[in-house]
Design a protein around this nucleic acid. Structure first.
Lengths: 239, 239
DNA sequence: CGGTTAGTTGAGTGCATTCAATCCCAGTGG
DNA sequence: CCACTGGGATTGAATGCACTCAACTAACCG
């Protein structure tokens, strides 16, 4: 149940106010005039924890730039098996993958999240009219593709403990790139989310975390992880 | 060991002569004048079976449009475990994923293959100057991202038999989209390649093929598969 | 306080793996 | 011509890792 807060320019801060680090994506290219043009098509939303931004198969209305919280893009099979394709952190854009105008995946708020949503056609038009933005979008897509390849290697080749170690290392890098604290590292997603991301069962994820703790590679409490031995973690991660 | 055959316009057919079906990618947009501009930067190569078009970590010189044969993009871990990220069929472009100007993955010719290679900078410049081509590249990247998500679901969630069934169904669709014969379906890659693509061992892949044959879902001989029960195959595939 | 959700841990099972043997076929050389 | 060889595929037997099912704890909330 999305709650529209209002259009930019008329209400609230500009969409990039909440974007941090070098993950500004398109916005950092834009001088005020083009920013205004883009933001007129943008609309802020707040999403409750565990609510869906979009569902696979539903018509694509908007693309979403995450400004706070975490969004998971996933695919669920007929019998309930779920694969999380990617986690989107503040600064990331999601919801643009479609087939015949319908979303290819589910988009779910893992935490309460805020987004700036852009009408798809108008956003596409804006991109088409701005070469630098178009190039940035291609770079962004290529980055995502690289990340998907790395993810695939993790799920296809690593053992359960290696996958979880890789996940911790990957999240650390993603947070660091956004200048978010990593000591300790907040992991707000549930074990079952991590499991669905890594192609494991939640019990296996839990056991892997315990094993890393027993080997003094990480420390665990609540939803946070403290890395005690980065070298060993990296080694296990195969990164 | 690549063997340059010559530049387009001066030697041999245009690069798209060998592209079939609707997978023309960028080229189908171009009228003769822009084609000539693009092809002046292109160069045909022939690749021996099991030779590398590019290696992970090596500087990116060119992007490759496959015009015949199959190219596999893969990542190999320090201990030899290998994950194939994608197979590239005629019409596909590969070799553009990079980190700091270096290839992110290996590119290996699974069969003897032919490519049209474009200098990366010049190709990038051409894309930048042509809005329609740029948009096509974005569409292409988004498609690849969608396929990577589907691949991830297969490797992360399906059983060995389901994965192999999915692989057969996926290859059938890919061939059909290029108007290549699918009855029987040629599968020129080795069992170990399929295994590395699906995150399995080659013996497991072989067992899965045998099981599909025993259940009269497919027939097997040599490097070809004949689908006997498409409905059951699709059901197993979870597509 | 009871009910719910999330996480951890234990016991036993099963599926994919490992290791090994065999088969088939293409290529090669005596 | 046939023997030999090597690569690829298949199949069998045994192992092990992740899974299933279950019990238990802790935190949170009505």
């Amino acid at each position: 149940m999305p709650s529209s807060i209002g259009h930019f320019g008329t209400n609230g801060p500009l969409p990039c106010d909440r974007c941090i680090g070098k993950q500004y994506n398109v916005c950092h290219l834009l001088e005020p005039e083009r920013q205004r043009e883009l933001f007129e098509t943008g609309c802020r939303h707040r999403w409750d924890k565990r609510s869906y931004l979009f569902r696979a198969g539903s018509p694509v209305g908007a693309v979403f730039k995450v400004t706070s919280g975490i969004v998971a893009e996933s695919r669920t099979l007929a019998d309930g098996r779920r694969q999380i394709i990617a986690f989107f952190l503040p600064g990331d854009i999601c919801g643009y993958l479609e087939t015949d105008g319908r979303h290819a995946f589910d988009g779910e708020a893992i935490t309460t999240a805020e987004t700036c949503s852009f009408n798809r056609e108008r956003f596409g038009g804006f991109v088409n009219r701005n070469n630098d933005v178009a190039e940035e979008m291609r770079r962004n897509l290529a980055d995502r593709l690289k990340m998907a390849g790395a993810h695939l290697s993790v799920v296809g080749q690593l053992t359960s403990t290696e996958r979880v170690a890789n996940f911790v290392a990957m999240m650390t890098a993603a947070y660091a790139a956004r200048n978010v604290q990593t000591r300790p590292l907040p992991l707000p997603m549930k074990r079952s989310d991590i499991a669905d991301y890594l192609g494991l069962r939640l019990e296996t994820v839990s056991r892997a975390f315990s094993k890393l703790r027993q080997h003094n590679i990480i420390d665990l409490n609540e939803d946070e992880v403290l890395i005690l031995d980065q070298a060993k973690l990296n080694q296990l991660s195969n990164r």
